[in-house]
Design a protein around this nucleic acid. Structure first.
Lengths: 206, 206
DNA sequence: ACAAACTGACAGGGCATCCTGTCAGATAGG
DNA sequence: CCTATCTGACAGGATGCCCTGTCAGTTTGT
């Protein structure tokens, strides 16, 4: 297939391709959230995106690559709103963490499909678990860092802080997952309050 | 196929059938741990068990049923060693929880395949997640209960305790998963110590 | 207007798995 | 010893998805 770039519908070739990729990514997120990983076939993604299989291979080499890209996109967005919220909030580390939690919970509340991909479907396959683990790890570090600046000498030593951060991040992820699914009946602010309290609890050494 | 029960090889029909089922369950656990959920096909399970496909349908109606049964078996075993350890250990609730953690960690250390099924592959499919969630929930309740008897008035109210228990159980599950995979370099007793400290932390209200 | 590129629809081969059926050899009970 | 049952091996159709190729119709640039 000879690829000679040309504009079409008033849109450049690069923009069209990028647009199709974005459509496919959104469709992948939607199918993942609605149908689960095993039913997220190339055919299903293309049908949801309203594109034919040929354009799938334009953006992704395989079904797995699309799924990984979808999770990456969601993970980056979640991490970014969290980091942004921390950067925008001054003062008390606990307040900063509450702001980050609020931002993340708001995101997954307004886009449950993204939340579902991030905390539910993200452990479906080995390849996805690598991403999930990396995301949890970055949150764990962030938590450990805030814990240190919150309690100083009263905080856990660095090695322990990493472990506690991981347990905290994974636990909150599960809590959010249960909340999205409806297994935990809490208001949004109660969810954030519980997670904030838990942060204080795991951050301080006794 | 007419089924007339008769002994064979000095073993009754019921015992032979039960033996095959046990073989298939063990094989399912092994394949799940080695190959992951998506590669745990009926063919692979049968090959690992050394049995032919016909006998698969004698015990299970589908691949999914076998996988669920395998996870259930592992979950029951883990929950049972935990409960047993708590029952066998008197006095301080924190000590009892440490005993339970030691028992569980010992089990997954001696049988990493079972550990892998319980904490890694258990979130691969929606059907498995139901089991995982139930298992986490029972641990969460157990944790909440011990927390209450440890701190009394200083413990969190019941509703919060459930949430904290879930976060704790899920966090520890992730920690154990990371430990099994080798992402967390800790001795077995350090792992138990960290988890015990965290229990105390999430149990007490400040 | 015309050729080339772009797009969407769809067909069909390839592959892995599920699931059923057959068949020969081994074993139990009369 | 002989027949019926049990067992393991394997064959083959059915299904669902992957992936490539074709084709007709639309849009662009000359």
């Amino acid at each position: 297939m000879v690829e000679v770039k040309r504009s079409y519908g008033g849109v450049s070739a690069a923009d069209r391709s990028a647009g199709r990729r974005a459509k496919l990514l959104e469709a992948t997120i939607a199918v993942l959230a609605d149908e689960g990983e095993s039913r997220t076939t190339m055919t299903a993604i293309c049908a949801r995106a309203g594109l034919t299989e040929r354009y799938f291979y334009e953006s992704f080499a395989s079904r797995d690559e699309a799924i990984v890209a979808a999770l990456d996109a969601v993970a980056v967005e979640i991490a970014s709103v969290a980091v942004q919220a921390i950067a925008d909030t001054g003062g008390d580390p606990a307040e900063r963490l509450r702001a980050a939690l609020t931002a993340v919970v708001s995101l997954v509340a307004s886009r449950p499909d993204k939340g579902r991909v991030a905390v539910v479907e993200s452990s479906a396959t080995p390849e996805l678990r690598v991403r999930r683990h990396a995301l949890l790890g970055s949150f764990a570090e962030l938590v450990a860092q805030e814990a240190d600046s919150l309690f100083g000498d009263a905080a856990w030593p660095a090695e322990r802080a990493k472990v506690h951060g991981l347990v905290y991040a994974a636990g909150v992820a599960e809590l959010v997952a249960a909340w999205i699914v409806g297994d935990v009946e809490l208001e949004q602010d109660e969810l954030v309050a519980a997670a904030t309290d838990l942060f204080v609890a795991v951050a301080r050494r006794h």
